[in-house]
Computed example of a mutant assay.
Amino acid sequence: MTNRWVGVTIDCVDVERVAAFWSALLDRPRGPSQDGWVYLGEPGDVEPRLVFQPVGEAKRGKVRVHLDVAVDDIGVGMGEVVGLGGSFTGERHDYDEGVVVVMADPEGHEFCLVQYY
């Protein structure tokens, strides 16, 4: 048996809004989805699919697993996230290898934008 990673599932109150944000940010098209859910990508894609699952309660606390999104320019990337309805958490880390900023999608799921030098 071969184990392989096929997706990441994100709980959302407003599945359509959060999926549209990630679709635009990652330029990842919507694939076949169950009613009420949204999948970005299709089975068998090279990259794992992002799955947006409807839940009745809003996010509470910091997420324990998050996505890292590489960008060529941290300022431009931050502007794109904010323009799509996301936000900057105020957290930034500068390292010899590059810079990491913690952003959030429209429902507050944290993720990192990373610019490598």
Rank of each mutant, 00 (worst) to 15 (best):
Arg64Asp: 15
Leu84Ala: 06
Val65Arg: 05
Val81Gln: 10
Thr9Ser: 15
Val51Arg: 09
Gly75Arg: 02
Gly98Val: 07
Leu84Ile: 02
Pro106Thr: 00
Arg49Phe: 01
Gly83Asn: 08
Leu50Tyr: 08
Val101Phe: 01
Leu113Cys: 04
Pro106Trp: 00
Arg28Val: 06
Arg60Phe: 09
Ile10Thr: 15
Lys62Glu: 15
Asp73Thr: 02
Trp37Glu: 14
Ala104Leu: 05
Pro54Trp: 10
Val81Phe: 10
Gly108Met: 02
Gly7Phe: 09
Lys59Arg: 14
Tyr117Leu: 12
Glu107Val: 04
Glu80Trp: 10
Asp68Thr: 00
Val114Trp: 05
Ala19Val: 03
Ser33Trp: 04
Gly85Ser: 10
Met103Arg: 01
Gln53Tyr: 14
Gln115Asn: 02
Gly86Thr: 08
His66Trp: 07
Asp96Phe: 08
Gly41Gln: 04
Arg60Trp: 05
Tyr39Val: 14
Glu16Ile: 08
Leu26Glu: 02
Ile10Gly: 11
Asp27Asn: 13
Ala70Val: 09
Thr89Arg: 04
Leu26Trp: 00
Glu57Pro: 02
Arg4His: 14
Leu50Trp: 11
Lys59Pro: 07
Met1Gln: 13
Glu97Tyr: 07
Ala104Ser: 12
Cys12Ser: 11
Gly31Val: 03
Ala70Leu: 12
Asp27Glu: 12
Thr2Val: 13
